[in-house]
Structures are given as C-alpha cells and as structure tokens.
Amino acid sequence: MDSFRDKLVPVTSILAGVVVLWYVFAVILNAPFQRDLDSRANETPGAVEFIGKTLAQPKPTLPAPHQVAVNFFENTFLRPITSSRSLVYNAWVTLSSTLLGFAFGTALGIIIAVGIVHVATLDRSLMPWIIASQTIPILAVAPMIIVVLAAIGVTGLIPKAMISTYLSFFPVTVGMVKGLRSPEIMHLDLMHTYNASPSQTFWKLRVPASVPFLFTSMKVAVAASLVGAIVGELPTGAVAGIGAKLLAGAYYSQSIDIWSALVAGSIVAALLVMVVGVAGRIVDRAMGGRPA
C-alpha cells in the first residue's frame, strides 16, 4: 500500500499541527477570563503557572485537547454503560435511531429508484422533485416531526428514526437510479439477443451494475442519517443521545462536555462510514472487483 504510506506522514503531521494550534488558541482564548479571575483573587502567577491555569479551567472558552480527552475517557470507559452520563450509552441511543432510520431510508430509496427506472411516468414526474428536494433544507422539518408525533403519542426512537429515514433516502434514490441506469448499451443489447425477460435483465445486469453506486450513496446516507438523529434530539429536550448531550452542555455552558460529545459523534460517524466502506469493499471483492 504505497499510497497509504504516502498519506500517513502528511496526515499525522497536519493533525499534530492542529493539536498544537489548538493548545495555542486555548491559552489565548481562555487567558482573559483567567486574568479576570487572578486579579479578583489578587494573584500574580508566573507565565508558566498562568498558562497551566488557562488549560485547566472547569468551563473554559476553548477546552484544551487533554481536558476533552480526559472527559471523553471518563465518560466512555469509567462510567457504567447504563449511566445516563456515559457517552457509550448516549452514543448508543443516537446510533440505534441512526441505524433504524438508515435501514428504512436505504430500503425506501432502493424501492423508489426501482420504480423510477421502470415506470416512465414516475421518472418524468417524480424524479425532478427528488432532485429539487435536495436543495431544500429538510433538517428544518425535524423539530416539527418530533413535536407533532409527540402530540399524537409517538415518542422515543421512531420520530428520530423518521428524520434519519428522510435524510438518508435521497442520496440512495439518486445513487441507485444512476446505478440501475449504468449498464452500457452493449450489455443491454446482449441481454436483448438472449431474449432475456425484463426481470432477468434486472437481476443479472442492472442490479450487479448498481452495487458500487449503492455503496457510495450509502456512505453519504449513513452520515446524513446520523446528523438527522442528532438534530432530532434537539427540539424535544431529549433526555439521552449525543444531540441531548450537546444541548445540555450548551444549556449549562459545560464546554468540555460539548466537545467530548462532539468527539463521540465524530467517532460514531467515522465508524459508520468506515463500516459501510468496508462492506462495500468486501462485496466489490466478492464480485470480482479489481484491487485498487
């Protein structure tokens, strides 16, 4: 893996640079408040001691990386998983609705794509709306779905999952329509010379040809699905989940909590995308894909 080693050094050095910058900014941003505190306490610490204090505030403007790391570690590994402050627990709450919504969204997207590819009327009438709806800030609907569903007694996992479904079916539909239409004319002609039935052409040609497109769009969809689940946790004052952690952190100005919730969300996102990517690669390999 030559390209991997090519990237490794630049990526790690840039990430290291980010961490250093982060510390510098943490000191700069937290300094005014610290100076305030010191002058009120009539203290005049030395430079090193002062910097140390800026990096150890309980509610810093910008928490230092190690503060976030410690908070993240404590809330992930040291708390019982059942505790409502455990990040594992909160991540799981968000993850479960993400996965449910993603599964439904993918299924829905595939069904709609199959309809669009096979029914000319749907293609001409529905497809333009699907494309247009990409330009609409659909996340704005999230609070309404949550509250309206709560009004008729549907709460918990389902409303969040619906938002995730909504967000993830668009990319899958568009990707699958592209994929199901991707076979070359020559391959279609070939099936025609065999007098293959439409269902044979579908299963033996269109479906295998669309698989790479499916996985590419599923990567986008799973990320969107997670964002949907997080945003879905905002309006209700949900009790658990990464979105709820963010909201609670914002409410009590617990900046370190916000950052570690963000880290948790990012890790979940990265893992989800990675899992879909690996699944895609396994399927591709099984279907005789050429190794990159």
Partner: peptide, 25 residues
C-alpha cells in the same frame, strides 16, 4: 449468437459465469 465489437463481458462475473449467462437465461 452475437459477438460485439468489444468483449462486453460482465466485470462482476468470472469467465465461466459469463459464458453461463445465456445458459442461465
């Protein structure tokens, strides 16, 4: 049987499965 200008084999099938395609159909 029709042979196109390009081989037009399905990339996700082995040679054997490619030849099997019309037979499956």
């Amino acid at each position: 049987g029709y042979v196109f200008q390009a081989a037009a084999l399905f990339p996700w099938r082995t040679i054997e499965r490619n030849v099997a395609l019309p037979l499956e159909i």
